[in-house]
Amino acid sequence: MISLKESLGKVTIVDFWASWCGPCRQENPNVVALYKELHGKGLNIIGVSLDKDAKAWKDAIAKDKLTWNQVSNLKFWDEPIAAQYKVESIPATFILDAAGNVVAKDLRGEALRAKILELLAK
C-alpha cells in the first residue's frame, strides 16, 4: 500500500498507463531516463496501471525497467484512482508540485522534463 499523501513534499508524476497501451510503452524510456536523472533531486513517480492481467502488468514493469512505485487494482477502466483523476484515455500524466497540487498534465518528452526541472528549482 502506498499513498499519494506520502509523496507530499516532493515533485510527483502520477503516470496512468497499461501494458497493452502502445503510446504508454513508447514513452516509458523517456520517463525512465527522467527518473534516473532527477529522482536524487526530489522527483517521485507513481505509476497507476489500467491493466486487468497481473502477469502482463508485472512483465511490462520488468521489461520497461520501471523502478518507481507501481499500483493497480487490476480493474481496467474501472480503476478507482483513474476515476478520481477523471482519466478517460491513456497515457495520462499529472504533475504535482511539492504541496500536492496538480500543476500540469499530459506532458511528454522534453516538455515534461522542462516542467519537472522548473518545479525542482523552486
Score class of each variant (00 low, 15 high):
Ile81Arg: 13
Leu107Asp: 00
Ala54Arg: 13
Asn69Ser: 12
Trp68Lys: 14
Gly42Tyr: 13
Glu27Asp: 10
Leu38Ile: 10
Lys58Gly: 05
Phe76Tyr: 15
Asp53Ser: 05
Pro29Gly: 07
Ser89Gln: 06
Val102Met: 02
Phe16Ala: 04
Arg108Val: 05
Arg25Thr: 07
Val14Ala: 01
Gln70His: 04
Arg108His: 09
Lys75Leu: 11
Glu27Asn: 11
Arg108Leu: 05
Ala99Tyr: 02
Ala60Tyr: 08
Ala92Trp: 00
Val103Trp: 01
Thr93Ser: 04
Ile61Asn: 01
Ser49Leu: 00
Lys75Asn: 09
Pro80His: 03
Ala104Glu: 06
Ala82Ile: 01
Asp51Gln: 07
Val48Gly: 02
Lys41Asp: 15
Asn101Leu: 03
Thr93Val: 03
Phe76His: 08
Tyr85His: 00
Leu8Arg: 04
Gln84Phe: 07
Asp15Val: 02
Ala82Pro: 03
Thr93Leu: 04
Asn69Leu: 15
Ala60Trp: 10
Phe16Lys: 00
Val103Ser: 05
Val71Gly: 00
Asn30Lys: 08
Glu27Thr: 15
Arg25Lys: 06
Leu96Tyr: 05
Ala92Thr: 09
Gly40Trp: 10
Lys105Leu: 04
Asp51Glu: 08
Asp64His: 06
Gly47Glu: 05
Lys5Ser: 06
Asn28Glu: 12
Gly42Phe: 08
Asn73Arg: 10
Ala99Met: 14
Tyr85Glu: 03
Ile61Gly: 02
Glu79Thr: 12
Ser7Asp: 04
Val102Glu: 12
Ser7His: 07
